[in-house]
Structure formats: C-alpha cells, structure tokens
C-alpha cells in the first residue's frame, strides 16, 4: 500500500471567537492581550483529515508548515501532540505585512523546498484575517489543482483522492489526482485530542531560536533525538524574489482600521407584563410596522 507525504498548513491566530466583555477595552478597542493565541480552528479540522490518511496508509507522514513569528512553534508542538510527525516554522521579518498573495507566495516557496509531498491540506479560513484565500492561492502558485470546502476524504485510490465538499446550498463529491491542495471546512470532524505518550515524547521539541533562548540542561538530547529539532526556515533557506515578499509583495494595503465601538441607542425598556406587551403590539400596529 502506498504511503502519503502530507503537509498541513496551519496558522496561529488570536482567538477572535470569544471576544467577550474582558476582551474589549472600555473605549471599545480590542484588548489583544486578553485573546489567547490558538491553533486556527479549521486547521485542526485539516490536521484531523491528514491524520486519518496516516491511520489508513501506514508509513504516511504528516508535517505541519506554519509561517509566523517565533512563538508560532507552539502550534507545531500542539500538532505533534495530536499525531503529526513534525513541522517547519517559516519565520522572517521580511514576511511582515504580507497580504494573502505574499503569504501564499512564501508558503509555496517553502513547499517547493520540501518538494516531496503528495497532499497539502489547509484550513478553509483563518479566524483573524477571515479571507479563505491562502489555500487556493498556494495551489495556483504551485500549479496544482485545488479542492475547497472539503468535509471528508472518502478514499484514495489509483493516485486519486475522492472527497466530499460542503457548499452553501448542497454537497458535491469530487475526485482529484495527487498532488493537490485541499482546504477543509469547519463542518469536518473535530481533531482528535492530544495523546499523553506523544506529549511525553515531544514536549521538549524546539526550534533553534527557542533552544538558544532556553536554559535547557539536556542539550545532548537534541543530538540523540533529531525529532526534537523543529526546523526553522528564514528567507535565506528558500528561493525567493524579495520583491514578492511582505509589504512590497502585497498588492492590497490596509489604508485604515477602525475598531467597532458599540454605541447604545435610546431603547424603550419593556417588561414581560401583559399590559406592556399589549401596549407594544398596539404601538407597532399603529406605526404600521406590523399588521
């Protein structure tokens, strides 16, 4: 049986889903410190699809590729605790200010360096930028077909992947030859939990930078157990045209950002008493809002 080399694209994001009372400051702006950095939710769905391929085709490998600041190595470890074999951190100041096009360019160049892969799996959308553009753009830059909104990979046979897509108004089953890029929907199965054995095995996995900044007593471990070294790539490790990176490589520019500030309207306050509801309905009928 064939084994597959799978790359999962994952992004570390601020948890924008739980912007509760403490996450908004009194002036209505976002208190970023109150938002934990998490594994982008749909990238966990993507990881699960990858791990299922590995379950079905022993010998397959799952590698997480993330572009971001140094701390994004956290999600590589998180992925390893759940069953990924390793990861690559793509990090460089030159990537700062990237729009989706410059992001996909950098990611596609890193994938060119990886070279040997069959399936790239991304999440549909990141919860901070919210664009859902990186997956399809990576596919285009690599000249590979793309399949978006995947909910389930049903089978892989004769070099073709068959999968179910969840669309706005229905479902579609498609078949696509490898290599390909697919993006996974939030409606796909949740990712399996961390595994205690894997946590033991990988908890000390670190990038070079993390290792330099730590006072690790067991440096020899990193020679004896190569899987503890998380590769860290900068622009110097990938073949790139610098003009295509970061701000200069980004056609879109953010001209202005406004925080959404909630301003209270003058509202009429009503109780659940019969007389109040009676009055309300009468008022709405008289103003021709209803009736």
């Amino acid at each position: 049986m064939k084994a597959y080399k799978i790359i999962v694209l994952a992004k570390q994001v601020p948890d924008t889903r739980n912007v509760g009372k403490d996450a908004m400051k009194a002036d209505g702006t976002i208190n970023r410190a109150a938002l934990p950095a998490i594994f982008n939710p749909e990238d966990l769905n993507a990881l699960e699809q990858a791990l299922r391929i590995k379950d079905r085709f022993p010998g397959s490998t799952v590698t997480i590729l993330t572009m971001g600041p140094g701390r994004a190595a956290e999600i590589i470890r998180e992925g390893m605790f759940r069953g990924a074999d390793g990861g690559i951190l793509l990090t460089d100041r030159a990537f700062a200010g990237s729009d989706t096009l410059a992001t996909s360019y950098a990611i596609s160049r890193a994938l060119k360096k990886v070279k040997d892969f069959d399936i790239v799996i991304a999440g549909r959308q990141a919860i901070d930028g919210d664009t859902a553009q990186v997956g399809p753009q990576v596919a285009e830059k690599l000249g590979l077909p793309q399949v978006t909104y995947v909910e389930e990979i049903q089978k892989i046979e004769n070099g073709k992947v068959e999968m179910k897509r969840r669309l706005e108004r229905g479902v579609e089953t498609v078949s696509c030859p490898v290599p390909l890029v697919l993006t996974v929907n939030g409606s796909a199965p949740d990712c399996r939990a961390r595994n205690a054995k894997l946590i033991m095995k990988y908890k000390h996995a670190k990038t070079v930078t993390e290792l330099q900044n730590s006072n690790e007593d067991y440096l020899h471990l990193y020679n004896d157990r190569p899987y503890l070294n998380i590769p860290e790539w900068t622009v110097n490790d990938i073949e790139v045209d610098h003009a295509e990176l970061g701000l200069s490589g980004s056609p879109t520019k953010v001209k202005k950002v406004e925080n959404v500030v909630l301003q209270a309207k003058e509202a009429k306050v009503i109780t659940s008493a019969d007389s109040d509801i009676d009055d309300l309905m009468r008022e709405l009928i008289e103003s021709h809002t209803i009736g």
Partner: peptide
C-alpha cells in the same frame, strides 16, 4: 476602490486599497 471589510472576527473594520495592481 476603497474596499471596506470586517476582519478579526468582525471586531474591526478595515479599508483596503490596491494602488498598483
């Protein structure tokens, strides 16, 4: 074209422009 969109889970509204491409 000023392209105005919510981002960051809807907590900010950004005006995006594309001057050159």
């Amino acid at each position: 074209l000023y392209q105005i969109r919510p981002a960051f889970g809807g907590n900010i509204i950004a005006t995006i422009i594309n001057p050159d491409c």
